[in-house]
């Protein structure tokens, strides 16, 4: 009799534990999603609704705010600049970073430790601060207020990640595969293009997107280094005090959309990337 009771309470506790577990997961998911949903309601509502009270809890699918956003002077140029800078950052950080990642994964060489330290050091440094002296430097070289100048700074931000991520990606390709290619008539370059590159391409794409988003999201350096050619983040930041609410929310939403896509595309690599970069 007592045994049966004991078992019952055990099963009960487990059942309650399960409920608690599931509801915490759901709650935490809501914690992430609901704020984004609120922003979406605001974006898909007419400007009047955005500043009215009380707020609806469902979007009215009015494109007024977005239209206003698109029509606001300089906004579309800022959007274009953001894409341009992020695109350049993406290309530069992979082209410059991937060879180093390959070298780290495949060679033992003198100074490797120092090099890794330099890379890690840049990650442990408030990098946007470097925008301050670069602003002066860029004025001297004519790079001030250009998309390319800003992309250079964003590449500095993205490079440590590009190196460490490609390092972990290359380390995931057994060197045996390359060696096999060498014995089968390839030189270093053809072995790389025929064997390593096809295997690594999805991962490279993921880290390129990562670099894109780093640049896309960066606020401080963008605000410091651009005046006429503002990126979207810099433009929004500059106009925070003056722009109406619906403009802020529409801009915020435009900023968020690539993030949603980005995380979805790279979700497979997110953990592998950090698992190795840890060490």
């Amino acid at each position: 009799m007592t045994d049966a009771v004991a078992i019952d309470t055990g099963a009960d506790t487990r059942k309650w534990g399960k409920y608690l577990y599931v509801s915490s997961v759901v709650l935490l998911c809501a914690w992430v999603i609901v704020p984004i949903y609120f922003l979406m309601i605001n974006t898909l509502s007419s400007p009047e609704t955005v500043s009215s009270f009380p707020k609806p809890f469902f979007p009215e699918f009015d494109l007024g705010s977005l239209k206003f956003f698109a029509g606001f002077a300089g906004m579309l140029t800022a959007l274009k600049n953001s894409v341009l800078v992020a695109g350049m950052t993406m290309i530069m950080s992979i082209l410059i970073g991937a060879p180093a990642g390959y070298a780290l994964s495949r060679f033992e060489f003198r100074g490797k430790g120092t090099f890794r330290l330099l890379i890690l050091l840049t990650r442990a440094f408030p990098l946007p601060l470097l925008a301050l002296p670069l602003a002066v430097l860029f004025i001297r070289t004519g790079l001030d207020d250009t998309a390319f100048g800003l992309a250079l700074v964003h590449t500095t931000l993205a490079l440590p990640f590009a190196v460490l991520i490609t390092f972990s990606l290359f380390s995931g390709i057994p060197i045996e595969l390359e060696e096999a290619a060498w014995t089968l008539g390839c030189n270093r370059l053809t072995a790389f293009t025929k064997v390593v590159l096809p295997l690594i391409l999805p991962g490279i794409t993921a880290s390129a997107i990562f670099a894109f988003v780093i640049s896309w999201n960066e606020v401080f350096a963008a605000a410091v280094l651009t005046i006429e050619n503002r990126t979207l983040t810099a433009f929004l930041l500059q106009n925070l005090d003056t722009s109406p609410l619906h403009l802020k929310f529409a801009g915020g939403f435009i900023l968020v959309v690539p993030a949603l896509i980005f995380i979805f595309v790279v979700r497979k690599y997110l953990f592998a990337m950090w698992g190795i970069a840890n060490r």
Binding site: E179, W182, T183, G185, N187
Partner: peptide, 20 residues
């Protein structure tokens, strides 16, 4: 000489069969 110019072929411990 590079491996490819030595007239050799090799079988590796983990086979090194190209996955793609």
């Amino acid at each position: 000489l590079a491996p490819k110019d030595r007239g050799i072929a090799m079988v590796f411990q983990n086979y090194a069969v190209f996955p793609h």
